[in-house]
Each structure stands twice: as structure tokens, then as C-alpha cells.
């Protein structure tokens, strides 16, 4: 099947628009709105549900991210070269992915339910949050659905649409600035939908509370407990210009 013009638009041009929005938006947000850069936690209002749902979602999504990195970045010949057969690879990926995906989905479902039913949490929810939740939940639902579908076709012995030969090839080609539109247009519809929602999520990232993921405090592991800072640095305006914004 030859790629049409829509394919070129979606898989040839759109990824670069999203990358530009993600990088540019993040830089802009960081410079414009460092004060608004926070998790906007609602734990003060409600803690019982959050303590189950939030770790479920976050740990789940961390595994999901690792899965995506492995699946998208490591080419199939590499894994075959170290002796991992296609069947073994897919069995592991599908089972682990499904476990992580369902945990994440359960987590976000609980989080959204909590957000809707707990009065104070709901009234602290902005339109921005709602949009973000919609896109994020759709990304997770479509991801889990695609995984389940692959597992089903795999089990019934049907012809499996292997994303490692389509989506992954396209994904890597994007980064070397030669997008393999044909590879992506050969992918199953499910994968295409999931990829599009994913792109939407990335475009939304800098403009939503999701930015807190970029400040994962890894540096905490390597710094002394007590932090001293000189007034000189602070008064010289190293952290904050006289007014917030570009100037």
C-alpha cells in the first residue's frame, strides 16, 4: 500500500510539529512560568484514595515508559542477534505490558473517579486538567486495547501486525530526519490511533501539569541533606528576573 498525502501529513510532518511544540513549549513555560511549575497536588484535600491510586498510576506508567523505550528504540535484528526469538520477545512484552498497562489504567480510573467525586478536588480542577486527563486516559486506553488485540491475534494464530516492523521503524526514522512514512502507513489502525493520541499528549505536555514529570528529583540522591544558599546569589536575581517573563 502506497502512502497517501494524509499519511505524509500525519507521519511525515506532524511529528516534527509536535517535537517543536514540546521543546519550544517547555522552554517557554520554564522561562515564563516557573512559579506555576508544580505537581498541583490535591493530597491536602483527600489522601485515602490518592495513596492507593497515585502510586498505582505512576509506577505503572514508569514501566510503560520503559516498555515503549525498549519496543521503539531497539531494532528487531539486535534482539534476535542476542538470541531472543520473536515469540519469546512478544510473550514477555505483551504480558509485562499488559500488566503495567492495566495497573496504570486502574490507577488513572481511580484518580479520575476521586477527582470527580471528592468535592474539594473537583472544584480545584481546571479545564486544562480535564483536557489533559481526557488525552492521557485515551492514550492509556488505546495502548492497552492495542496490546490486548495483539495478544489475541497472537494466541489465535492469526497474522500479527508486528509494530516492531512498522511503528518502531518509523519512530527511529523520525529522529534521523528521514521519516519512513511507508513503514508507519503499513501499521494497523489501532497503532495509528494510539500514536496520534500519543502525539497529542506530547503537544499538551508543556502546557499542562504534566510538566512536573520533567522535574523528577533525581538530583536529591546525590546532594547533601542541608542546602545553604547565599543571599548574594538570590539578591543578584539569579533565579528570578525583576518581573516574570521573557525580558
Amino acid at each position: 500500500m502506497n502512502p497517501g498525502s494524509l499519511d505524509y501529513l500525519l507521519w511525515g510532518a506532524l511529528p516534527y510539529v509536535v517535537i517543536a511544540v514540546l521543546v519550544g513549549g517547555t522552554v517557554w513555560r520554564y522561562r515564563y512560568d516557573r512559579f506555576g511549575w508544580t505537581t498541583r497536588s490535591s493530597q491536602l484535600y483527600e489522601s485515602r484514595l490518592l495513596r492507593i491510586a497515585s502510586p498505582m498510576f505512576h509506577f505503572g506508567i514508569l514501566v510503560v515508559i520503559v516498555g515503549h523505550v525498549v519496543g521503539l528504540l531497539i531494532p528487531e535484528p539486535w534482539t534476535s542477534a542476542v538470541g531472543v526469538t520473536g515469540g519469546a520477545y512478544h510473550a514477555t512484552a505483551l504480558s509485562l505490558g499488559l500488566l503495567a498497562g492495566v495497573t496504570t489504567l486502574g490507577g488513572i480510573a481511580l484518580l479520575i473517579w476521586r477527582r470527580r467525586t471528592t468535592g474539594p478536588v473537583f472544584s480545584a480542577t481546571t479545564v486544562n486538567d480535564k483536557t489533559m486527563y481526557l488525552v492521557l486516559a485515551s492514550a492509556i486506553v488505546s495502548g492497552v486495547a492495542v496490546t490486548m488485540l495483539s495478544a489475541y491475534t497472537g494466541l489465535t494464530g492469526g497474522h500479527e501486525n508486528d509494530y516492531r516492523e512498522t511503528v518502531s521503524v518509523w519512530f527511529r526514522s523520525v529522529w534521523v530526519l528521514r521519516p519512513d512514512v511507508a513503514a508507519m502507513s503499513a501499521a494497523g489502525t489501532g497503532f495509528k490511533v494510539h500514536a496520534l493520541i500519543g502525539l497529542a499528549l506530547f503537544a499538551l505536555f508543556p502546557f499542562s501539569r504534566l510538566v512536573h514529570a520533567f522535574s523528577a528529583p533525581v538530583g536529591y540522591l546525590f546532594r547533601p541533606y542541608v542546602v545553604y544558599r547565599s543571599r548574594g546569589r538570590e539578591a543578584a536575581g539569579a533565579t528570578r528576573p525583576a518581573r516574570r517573563g521573557w525580558s
Binding site: R34, F35, W37, T38, T39, R40, S41, H212, S215, P217, G219, Y220, R223, V226, V227, Y228, R229, S230, R231, G232, E234, T239, R240
Partner: peptide
């Protein structure tokens, strides 16, 4: 503080939160 947003000022010992670095953990 995981973000390192809280600090003790070395000149006068006052403990402050850098509102630009706090991420709400």
C-alpha cells in the same frame, strides 16, 4: 525537599522556600 528548593541562607540562617524551584512534592 527533593527539589532542593528549600535552603538556609548562609548570611543570616533564615530558612526559605524558593517559590520558583518548589515542585510541590
Amino acid at each position: 525537599c527533593p527539589s532542593g528548593a528549600m535552603y538556609k541562607r548562609s548570611e543570616d540562617g533564615i530558612v526559605l522556600v524558593d517559590q520558583d524551584k518548589c515542585r510541590g512534592w
